[in-house]
Simulated scan of single mutants.
Amino acid sequence: MQKHQKTLNGVEVVRRWTCHPRSVRLARAELSRALAAWALTEIEDAALVVLSELVTNAVRHARIPSGREIETRYALVGVGLRIEVHDAAEARPRRLAVGADAENGRGLALVEALADEWGISDRVGCGKAVWAVVSAAPGVGRSESAGVAERVPVGGTGG
């Protein structure tokens, strides 16, 4: 499943996954390892739910051309994390109004509730990046003296 790996100065992890439901579990495991390494386990629950929803949306709804993959990026920003999920589909996700008994359609509402901010950005070439920022409480995780207090640019997605 894991197709590509790149780490930039220890503050960004990039992976590519096949468009398959098991990629959700694998991406979650990778994010969990990164959060532990970055001492950001306080945000792990929220970050894993956000990632799960974004990758699940890409797997279920992004009708991507054969041979294309889903890319995840996890980047330190301030005292939190920017999560990005890239796919080659042009269709943009939208938050749905769902009934109380609906089995689907709550993913972006969960992302909105758990993330400090989220959005959709264009990519160079085809597709889009859906991103979210999840932050720890001030004073938790990496400190400003660790050199990661400023925003880390992530792959030119413009979010």
Rank of each mutant, 00 (worst) to 15 (best):
I43K: 04
G67N: 04
L48V: 14
V79G: 10
A46M: 03
R33F: 06
E84K: 02
L31N: 02
S32Y: 02
T56F: 09
D45L: 15
R60I: 07
L40F: 05
G78R: 13
I64W: 01
A89G: 06
V77M: 05
T41S: 14
R60N: 14
R63N: 10
A47G: 07
S52P: 07
R73F: 08
T41C: 11
I43D: 06
E42A: 09
V59N: 12
P65H: 02
A88W: 00
G78I: 09
A88R: 01
I64S: 00
L81Y: 11
N57L: 07
N57Q: 11
R60C: 12
R60T: 14
A47Q: 01
A58K: 04
R73W: 13
R63D: 08
D45Y: 13
V59C: 12
W38K: 15
L51A: 04
L51G: 01
V77R: 12
L76Q: 14
L81T: 14
T72R: 06
H61P: 06
V77D: 05
I43N: 02
A62T: 04
A37Y: 02
Y74F: 11
S66M: 09
V59W: 09
I64Y: 00
R82N: 08
S66V: 14
G80R: 05
N57T: 04
L81G: 10
A39L: 08
S66I: 10
V50E: 03
R82K: 12
I64D: 00
A62D: 13
E30K: 04
R82C: 11
D87C: 06
D87L: 03
L31V: 01
G80H: 03
E69G: 00
A39M: 03
S32M: 14
E44M: 13
A46Y: 07
A58E: 05
E84P: 00
